[in-house]
Amino acid sequence: MRAVRALALVALLLEVSAVLSYPREAADDGVLSPQDVGRRGEASMLNDRPIIGILSQEVPRSLRRAFGNYTSYIAASYVKYWEAAGARVVPIRINQPRSYYRQLFSWLNGLVFPGGSAKLDVSGYGRAARILWDMAAQEPKDFFPIWGTCLGFELLTFLELNERRLDRCKSQNQALPLEFTADGFTSRMFSGASKALLKAFMEQNVTINFHKYCVSPETYRNTSLSRNYRLIATNRDWDGQVFVSAFEHRIRPVYGVQFHPEKNIFEWGEKTSISAIPHWPEAIQASQYLADFFISEVRKNRHRFPSAAEEHKHLIYNYKTEYTGLIGSVFVQCYLFD
């Protein structure tokens, strides 16, 4: 009997010890403390609760006519795209005071400039982007990932050059494979892709383009873009004009693509009866790879909201989506902001 009791006592002590030594869950604010980091080891240096900001932009006329006089919007496909890679999203409003952007920058783990049709120089979209961009540039030791898609890609070049250096392109509803440069295969963006996935990127029409403007290789070579960015891939529009499809900053975690990876999974081209958006398995895998890559970068940032209440107040969950695909919008769903 004494032996049985002794064994039971040992088992109890082992159970208590296991509970005490097991990594604690995140605190109420959802962010690990330095003590948690130590307990969980080196892998816990990554932020497993990343939150990114997506910049909104002016509402197009079609949405205003259908839903009223909202001031800005974000296509829901961008939100769902990054959520599917394990991030949460905060909408960043346009035309706000600088203090608003400073606060969000200090709390967010990364930033996305989405596609759309806003002007780069005189829009609320462009002005807010400039403020956030300058904040990131002024803190070079702060690892703050930024991603630009289509218009957002063009915006990155505008922020770099301080001028609009775009050419006209005819690449509407055009699905293409990527034409990698030599740097493409060793780039941060694509070096983690499997051989099978790289083959899909190179041989299948897995990237969908919807743009009227583009950055030419000549503009890239003859400006500071070549000094600060690695050219990863190019493409040709319907007329055979070559344009830059993807690049990444040589030092900072800044990435841009002229195509729309989010559309492969979350947009269906309801505005037109014929859509070139690729939805086959390899196209989905290619799209998901890029989302996973960027969020893996975002996880390296350790910014945090000051409290759970502040975090919850800003999350996209506070807003509802509108079904915009049936009223002429190129987006199936949108978030609209007052």
Rank of each mutant, 00 (worst) to 15 (best):
A6S: 11
L7E: 14
L7Y: 10
A8C: 10
L13D: 00
L13I: 13
V16Y: 11
S17H: 09
L20D: 02
Y22W: 14
A43I: 14
S44K: 04
L46V: 02
I51L: 10
L63P: 03
N69G: 01
Y70R: 04
S72N: 09
A75L: 02
A75G: 14
V79S: 02
V79H: 04
W82A: 02
P91E: 04
N95M: 05
R98F: 07
Q103L: 06
F105N: 05
W107Q: 13
N109C: 02
N109V: 02
A118Y: 11
L120P: 06
V122Q: 12
A128W: 11
R130I: 01
I131G: 01
L132E: 03
W133I: 01
W133A: 01
A136R: 11
E139T: 11
K141F: 08
F144Q: 04
G148E: 06
E163M: 11
E163S: 14
R164S: 13
S171N: 14
L178S: 08
D183M: 07
S191P: 00
K195Q: 13
K195W: 00
L198I: 14
L198V: 10
M202R: 14
E203S: 13
V206H: 05
N209D: 07
H211K: 06
T219L: 05
Y220H: 10
S224W: 04
R230C: 00
T234V: 14
D237T: 04
D239Y: 10
Q241W: 01
A246M: 06
A246P: 02
H260L: 08
N264F: 03
F266N: 03
K271D: 12
H279I: 02
E282R: 10
Q285F: 00
D292P: 00
E297K: 12
N301I: 02
A308K: 15
E311A: 11
H314K: 12
N318E: 09
T324D: 05
G325D: 07
I327L: 11
S329F: 07
F331V: 00
